[in-house]
């Protein structure tokens, strides 16, 4: 395993006073994709939002050895953490071009790279994002994170609710992106996890209950059923 790009130590997070992440500690290697797995409500999304400071949190978060847990969200992002939220959260009233332009933080954004990954978006530049299909909105959401040279991407359930063809497209894009930036990926589709992820962290009741290689977990039917409540085959 390569050195950690992200270290999370005793992270606790809460929403409206309700503790949703109890005590989470893990490392994210500096290369490849690390999956965060767990049953619904386990605290996966809250862990990502806590790392980014989008919800109240305590504990230590280090990006490439530097503490970022006291920073406000936009400062963390400016340090090179891209974010693809669970519900896509495109700006419905803005055009595709405006959604992408807002995400550009650097002088020479990687527009060509994004255009190659998602050629459909170029043709829809002037279309309001709210009128796009779910899959196209997800492409906008992923594209926003890929426009900049990030040090880490936090990607939350990018294939949720998408048609199988679009799932493949999004997974292809993440695989391509992972060649240049490490990704911490929350994903329920275990087939996608099996294809993309090198490492996996399993969270239950707001705590890390298992870490290891993704294949180790997914190839062990008993372990998968015990940790996730499903088998890899029936949940793909």
């Amino acid at each position: 395993m390569s050195a950690a790009i992200l270290q999370v130590r005793n992270l606790r997070a809460s929403i409206a006073g309700q503790q949703v992440v109890e005590d989470v500690s893990f490392d994210v290697p500096a290369t490849g994709i690390t999956a965060v797995l767990g049953r619904n409500g386990a605290g996966k999304t809250s862990t990502l939002r806590g790392i980014l400071g989008l919800i109240a949190r305590r504990g230590e978060v280090l990006l490439d050895g530097e503490r970022i847990d006291a920073l406000r969200t936009h400062r963390i992002v400016q340090r090179g953490v891209g974010y693809v939220p669970e519900e896509r959260e495109v700006f419905a009233g803005l055009t595709v071009a405006e959604n992408l332009a807002l995400a550009e933080r650097q002088r020479d954004p990687r527009r060509e790279f994004v255009a190659q990954l998602f050629p459909d978006l170029a043709a829809r530049r002037d279309q309001r994002a709210g009128t796009l299909s779910g899959g196209q909105q997800q492409m906008v959401s992923v594209a926003r994170a890929l426009l900049n040279d990030n040090r880490l991407l936090l990607v939350d359930e990018p294939t949720k609710g998408l048609a199988p063809k679009i799932v493949t497209e999004v997974a292809d894009a993440l695989a391509e992106a992972a060649t240049t930036v490490p990704i911490l990926l929350v994903e329920q589709n275990l087939e996608v996890v099996r294809r993309l992820a090198d490492q996996a962290i399993v969270i239950a009741d707001g705590r890390v209950v298992h870490t290891g290689s993704a294949s180790e977990i997914l190839d062990d039917a008993d372990l998968t059923r015990r940790l996730l409540g499903v088998s890899a085959e029936e949940h793909s």
């Binding site: 980014l52 989008l54 406000r72 969200t73 936009h74 992002v77 400016q78 974010y83 939220p85 959260e89 700006f91 419905a92 009233g93 803005l94 405006e98 807002l102 995400a103 933080r105 926003r144 900049n148």
Partner: peptide
């Protein structure tokens, strides 16, 4: 305009 829709996501774009 984006902030009126979703202030948190604007922040999450840096």
């Amino acid at each position: 305009r984006a902030g009126v829709e979703n202030r948190g996501m604007v922040t999450a774009l840096g």
